[in-house]
C-alpha cells in the first residue's frame, strides 16, 4: 500500500521547478520532509494526487490553495494523523529525514511525538491549563522532566504566560478563543518536537490574536520546522519562507482531486509565479 516503484521518484516537473529557482535551495539546506509520488485516497476517492515536494528544516512552509484541494489531507500525512480516518490510504513515499514514514516498521505514535500539530479550531482538553500543557510530556512517560518548568517555558514561548500565570488551575476551555489557540501551541511545543504542523491556526481568531500568533510562528521558526496551512494570502507572505500552491481539478467522473501546482520561495510564488493558476489565485482572481 505504501510502497511504490522507486525508479520514478524523481519527477520531471519538480526538478524543473527547482531549476527555475536557482537560489531557493542551497545544497546544504537540510530537508525534513520529502514527498515522492504521493497519492492519497479516502476509500475510492482520490483526494490528492502526484505530490512531489521537499520541506526544508527550520523554515516556515505554507500550503495555500482553494477549499477542498487537500491541504489538510496532506498536512495530516506528515504526522500520520490520517491513520485515524477510516478508508484513508496513501501511495508513494513520504520521507521524514531518511525514514519513510509509511514503512511497516514505523510506529506512528513515535512519529507524532516528534511532529506536533495545531488545529484549525482551538481544541484544548477539558482539563486545567497546566494539565493541557503537561499532557504531551505525561503520555511520553518522561519522568525526569521538571513539569513546572516545562509548563512555564512553553506558555512563555507561546506568549500566553503573562495572561494565565495566576490561574494555571483554570479549565483550558474557560480561555478566550485566541488564548485557547496559544494554549494549543504551548501544548504542541511542550514536548519539544522537531516539527510543528499548523492547519489554519488563525482562522477562528480576531486580527490581534492572529498577529500575536504570526509573530510566534516567526519566532518559533528559529528552532522548529513549521508547516502551516492558510487561506490568508497576506498571512502566507508575512510568515512563510516557502509557499506551496495546491489546486483541485475534476476528473472525468467529476470528482475533484487536489494536486501541487508549484512551490518555491514565497516571494517568487507571489511575485513571479510560473503557472497561470498560481498567478490567478494569489492575485485573487480565482474562479
Amino acid at each position: 500500500m505504501t510502497d511504490n516503484s522507486t525508479e520514478q521518484s524523481t519527477d520531471q516537473k519538480s526538478i524543473q521547478e527547482l531549476a527555475n529557482y536557482p537560489d531557493s535551495y542551497s545544497e546544504n539546506d537540510e530537508t525534513v520532509f520529502r514527498a515522492e509520488n504521493i497519492n492519497i485516497y479516502y476509500g475510492d476517492f482520490l483526494a490528492v494526487r502526484d505530490v512531489n515536494m521537499e520541506i526544508p528544516a527550520r523554515k516556515v512552509t505554507a500550503f495555500i490553495g482553494p477549499s477542498g484541494c487537500g491541504k489538510s489531507t496532506l498536512i495530516r500525512c506528515l504526522n500520520r494523523l490520517n491513520d485515524l480516518i477510516e478508508g484513508f490510504c496513501l501511495e508513494g513515499r513520504m520521507f521524514y529525514h531518511d525514514q519513510n514514514l509509511y514503512a511497516d516498521e514505523v510506529d506512528p505514535v513515535e512519529v507524532r511525538r516528534r511532529i506536533g500539530m495545531v488545529f484549525q479550531q482551538p481544541n484544548p482538553f477539558p482539563k486545567s491549563i497546566y494539565n493541557n500543557v503537561a499532557y504531551g510530556i505525561r503520555v511520553t512517560g518522561k519522568k525526569d522532566a521538571d513539569m513546572d518548568e516545562v509548563v512555564e517555558r512553553s506558555l512563555q514561548r507561546a506568549a500566553l504566560w503573562d495572561e494565565v500565570k495566576d490561574k494555571l488551575g483554570a479549565n483550558g476551555l474557560s480561555l478566550s478563543g485566541g488564548q485557547q489557540q496559544r494554549l494549543c501551541i504551548a501544548r504542541a511545543i511542550a514536548t519539544n518536537p522537531d516539527v510543528v504542523l499548523m492547519d489554519e491556526p488563525c482562522s477562528s481568531l480576531d486580527p490581534i490574536s492572529t498577529l500575536k500568533i504570526e509573530e510566534l510562528i516567526r519566532d518559533l521558526s528559529e528552532e522548529y520546522t513549521i508547516v502551516i496551512v492558510t487561506h490568508n494570502m497576506q498571512q502566507a507572505t508575512r510568515v512563510s519562507d516557502i509557499t506551496a500552491f495546491f489546486n483541485a481539478q475534476a476528473n472525468e467522473e467529476g470528482k475533484r482531486s487536489g494536486y501541487l501546482v508549484e512551490y518555491g520561495p514565497t516571494e517568487h510564488i507571489f511575485n513571479s509565479p510560473q503557472q497561470e493558476a498560481t498567478q490567478n489565485y494569489v492575485s485573487g482572481q480565482f474562479g
Binding site: N79, L81, L84, V109, E110, R112, R113, G116, M117, F119, Q121, N123, P124, F125, P126, K127, Y135, G136, R138, V139, T140, C184, R187, A188, T191
Partner: peptide
C-alpha cells in the same frame, strides 16, 4: 466528545487507548 479533541491527544503522541482513558472518558 469532538473528534478534534481526540486528534489533539493522538497528535501529541498518545496512543489510542491512552487517548480514551485520559481525555475521552473523563470528558
Amino acid at each position: 466528545v469532538p473528534r478534534q479533541v481526540r486528534w489533539a491527544s493522538v497528535g501529541l503522541g498518545a496512543s489510542r487507548y491512552e487517548t480514551v482513558l485520559r481525555v475521552v472518558l473523563p470528558a
